[in-house]
Design a binder for these strands. Structure first.
Length: 479
RNA sequence: CGGGGCGUAGCGCAGUCUGGUGAGCGCGCUUGGUUCGGGACCAAGAGGUCGGAGGUUCGAAUCCUCUCGCCCCGACCA
């Protein structure tokens, strides 16, 4: 058992921060709410980025970069947008030793600048669609920062597209939501619920917001990514018009969608344990570590190390060069070396001691379950990738089982309230309430509607208003 | 931003109420030795302007004022 980590059951928040510290994922920066993403954390982000970036390109998107600073007036062009974001904007008022004529906002999101540029680039229906993504940092001065989940500055990806028809824009919104779901499930092992946000939870300025909601280890909900159908709201605000095939001027239909470094927080909170970080193999910078173990220096240098090098070499061919590490920390005792990699979340550990060498096997130990076994030398390049796949799938399956076990159905207010108080987790209920109802529910239970799951199209009587033909919603306390 | 807690070595803490002779303890770190397949042991060391600024006092980690930061609970949110 780890002695430098608060047990998860004792204090989930402390545990979460301890895991980040011990695994060296991030550290606090000198500026409030800001974090330094350390090399290990950044490597995880790069792995995540790669999957998303490839998928964006496969779906026809291209990357570009828009500026960090946005004229204050841009934000004000969309009424709901400014209302939603103005309170959390950092604003530059001075530059070059002088006060600026117009304050510049550090982007909290880029719909406005991009809208401005799109209005210049789009004239004809032939210019559409525009499918651009950018990888960037944004800044939102949140009241209560928390490493990875909510920092003042964070890294993300924001896709911004413009289309000539409503149907096409809607299709794009849902296509990217599905891309998100697929990568979150397949690569981050995060089982998510795709759903539509309620009016009260919508992105400021959006016509409709879709989300991938996940449940983390303390049964709270976390919005892992969102995809917004912006209708013509931003097109009107920024005058994004095009001439259609009939020669008439029309406003474009736009979308935006994003995932952020919050995903790293979601992975930590979903999969890790009291010993530290557990990473799904597909996003683990180091997928497997090979440890020659021995005290006899001759045995080490003549047999164990050369064999370990050979095995590591074979594995690198299968898994990729940087994801296999040969541990040479011989100044440390074996147990310390085990913990070193354990706490950093390396999915699979391979040990090669004299006993193993004599048998012609390596000993494997799974990070997620602690399961051990022996692999004959010659099968290592075949078995290790299989094991990593199994770990990947079982991590996902466990997280999904956890969510299902902590999801319940409520048909009345009393039941709803009791479930949230006594069990926590997700509570499903038919809901047809207003934004005011959402607020009241939050005040009385702490829970918010997370989404209307797309997969469930059933209708029923609203648990709150009694209205018929209400959609099924998921409620939970959320990060 | 409101309520509560807390800042003393890299980490965790004692000391603060009741100011007073060396600023201590555990873990970690360095060096040497014995150990070595799930967090060893012995010995010798290094490491602090007690979060910061100002004040009271002969004297401040300790008392007062201001300030910064962290954690928890709310409101705001990717």
């Amino acid at each position: 058992m780890a002695r430098n980590i608060t047990p998860r059951s004792a204090d989930f928040s402390e545990w979460y921060l301890d895991v980040i510290k011990v695994a060296e994922l991030a550290d606090y920066a000198p500026v409030r709410g800001c974090m330094v993403i350390r090399p290990t954390g950044y490597a995880v982000w790069e792995a995540i980025q790669r999957y998303f970036d490839d998928a964006f390109k496969e779906t026809g998107h291209v990357n570009a970069y828009f500026p960090l600073l946005i004229p204050n007036s841009f934000l004000e062009k969309e009424a709901e947008h400014v209302e939603g974001f103005a309170p959390e904007c950092a604003v530059v008022t001075h530059a070059g030793g002088e006060e600026l004529e117009e304050p510049l906002v550090i982007r909290p999101t880029s719909e406005t600048v991009i809208g401005h540029m799109y209005s210049k680039w789009i004239q004809s229906w032939r210019d559409l669609p525009i499918l651009i993504n950018q990888w960037a940092n944004v800044m939102r001065w949140e009241k209560r920062p928390r490493l990875f989940l909510r920092t003042s500055e964070f890294l993300w990806q924001e896709g911004h597209t413009a289309h000539s028809t409503e149907a096409e824009a809607l299709e794009e919104t849902l296509r990217m939501l599905e891309v998100y779901r697929r990568i979150m499930e397949d690569c981050l092992a995060l089982p998510v619920v795709e759903g539509e946000k309620t009016a009260g939870e919508r992105f400021p300025g959006a016509a409709n917001t879709y989300t991938c909601e996940t449940m983390v280890g303390d049964k709270k909900a976390l919005q892992a990514g969102t995809s917004h159908f912006l209708g013509q709201n931003f097109a009107r605000a920024f005058n994004i018009q095009f001439q259609n095939q009939e020669g008439n001027l029309e406003y474009a239909w736009t979308t935006s969608w994003g995932v952020s470094t919050r995903l790293i927080g979601a992975v930590i909170m979903t999969h890790s344990d009291d010993d530290g970080l557990i990473l799904p193999p597909r996003i683990a910078p180091v997928k497997t570590v090979l440890l020659p173990i021995g005290t006899d220096e001759a045995a080490l240098s003549e047999r164990l190390l050369p064999k370990a090098e050979a095995i590591a070499g074979d594995l690198k061919k299968v898994l990729g060069g940087t994801s296999v590490v040969l541990d040479r920390q011989f100044h440390m005792r074996p147990a310390d070396r085990f913990f070193f990699h354990l706490q950093r979340g390396v999915p699979l550990r391979l040990e090669l001691g004299e006993k193993d060498f004599a048998k012609g096997t390596v000993r494997f130990v799974r990070r997620d379950t602690g399961e051990k076994g022996d692999i004959p030398f010659e099968s290592v390049p075949k078995v290790v990738p299989e094991l990593l796949d199994r770990i990947q799938h079982e991590m996902h399956a466990r997280a999904k089982a956890f969510r299902l076990a902590n999801t319940a159905r409520a048909s009345s207010w009393d039941e709803f309230r009791a479930l949230l108080e006594e069990r926590g987790g997700f509570v499903e209920a038919y809901f047809a309430g207003s934004v005011e109802d959402e607020k009241r529910i939050k005040e009385e239970t702490g829970a918010t509607p997370r989404c209307f799951p797309l997969a469930d199209e059933s209708r029923g009587r609203c648990f709150l208003t009694g209205q018929d033909n209400a959609r099924l919603a998921i409620f939970a306390k959320a990060y």
